[in-house]
Nucleic acid binder design. Structure first.
Lengths: 212, 212
DNA sequence: TAGATTGTTAATCGATTAACAATC
DNA sequence: TAGATTGTTAATCGATTAACAATC
């Protein structure tokens, strides 16, 4: 698996391939060609082949792609074949909702603890995972070799929390606060309101039937 | 405001401009040039000018952009200057968490009701908004002229819910279920796990310090 | 007026799509 | 072998960036 320089566009399509391949595998499909997959996903077949070939050839001429093998390869590329220890900072509605997501756990994302400043929350448990005071953030990250830090805190606290987590050795940040967190480690900003605003824009500006 | 053909890339930058302009306005800045904004946002100044000029010229040669005016223009483009009646289908953790987001309401998104199939949830209220049985989905949408339908239901129910909402006259769908909902109206798919997978990929594949 | 900065056209870059030889 | 479909190179398309005349 040669991962030289994969463009952001390709990376963002990988989880989508993964989703469709899981579905194909579940319905028992053994093989699929790039053109069949392109029809299902609404992509171009060439693009699909180009994308897969960023990571090495997974197909076979005259046959196409073996669904299970391809799925395993994509899962490996996305590192879904190992566990990612994670914590959630901010035990409010978003933090708690994320903790209840069963899908993440199945995919190897292990949300081990929550952190909050609210003394009424500290000590409680969400889905069996303890809420600690945020004072213990750094030591917990170090002691448990946490990889991913989820920011589900208020906007004003987000950047400082990111800095603290990075200094404690976190490897990546999943940010739900409505600002662009800056960091030396990879950050994924989930801007829910940005997405809602784009929808609102399209509501008024797209002609009927323009969307797939 | 001439909105001819604005590319998806430009549309997705608009909420980001909006966020930064809100901040600039809050800290009392009166004017900003495209190059100053480009430095703050990590974009190219030409791109910023090109983006704004998709919607008409908001600036003034030799001066730059008046922050408040520009903010008002971007808000209008994103239709944040009027109210968007919305409902949430699925009163589980995600649905409830979205209902508790105060930011959306301030921006004109009015989540008026929730819907669920669970009889233990039906009749309860979340933040003052009633949870109805999903049987009443279509009539509620029609009677209250709901624009936006949020899908916070399980994957298996998502597509059928989308179809039902569209047939009842919904104008756009904000989908949190982990599949690509197909629809004749605009859809914004918020794929949380996709975003987490991208982060996991970058964790292993990005060299230190590659991220901004 | 001189200086600054936009609006806009032109150049570049990168991503998508097409084409086809390789090969199962 | 013939047919099918990949892997990969080449062409196209669109988005980003640069340049500069217009103008406040």
């Amino acid at each position: 698996m040669k991962t030289n320089k994969v463009s952001e566009a390709v990376i963002r399509r990988l989880p989508r391939y993964y989703r469709y391949l899981v579905q194909l595998a579940q319905q028992g499909d053994e093989r699929i060609s790039s053109s069949e997959l392109s029809a299902i996903m609404g992509l171009n077949a060439s693009q699909i082949r180009q994308d897969f070939n960023c990571f090495g050839g997974f197909g076979q001429q005259g046959y196409g792609y073996h669904v299970k093998s391809l799925l395993r390869e994509i899962a490996a590329i996305l590192t879904l074949d190992h566990t990612h220890p994670a914590i959630i900072v901010g035990a409010g509605n978003i933090g708690q909702a994320l903790m209840y997501f069963e899908g993440f756990e199945k995919q190897g994302f292990d949300f081990r603890a929550l952190f909050d400043v609210n003394p009424e929350l500290v000590g409680k448990r969400i889905r069996g995972r303890e809420i600690f005071h945020v004072d213990r953030l750094e030591s917990y990250i170090r002691d448990n070799e946490i990889e991913i830090g989820v920011i589900a805190a208020r906007r004003s606290a987000a950047q400082a929390l990111a800095d603290r987590m990075v200094s404690a050795g976190i490897k990546g940040i999943w940010n739900f606060a409505p600002l662009d967190v800056q960091s030396s480690v990879p950050v994924e900003n989930v801007h829910l309101s940005d997405s809602l605003f784009v929808l609102a824009f399209k509501l008024s500006n797209m002609e009927a039937g323009e969307e797939q």
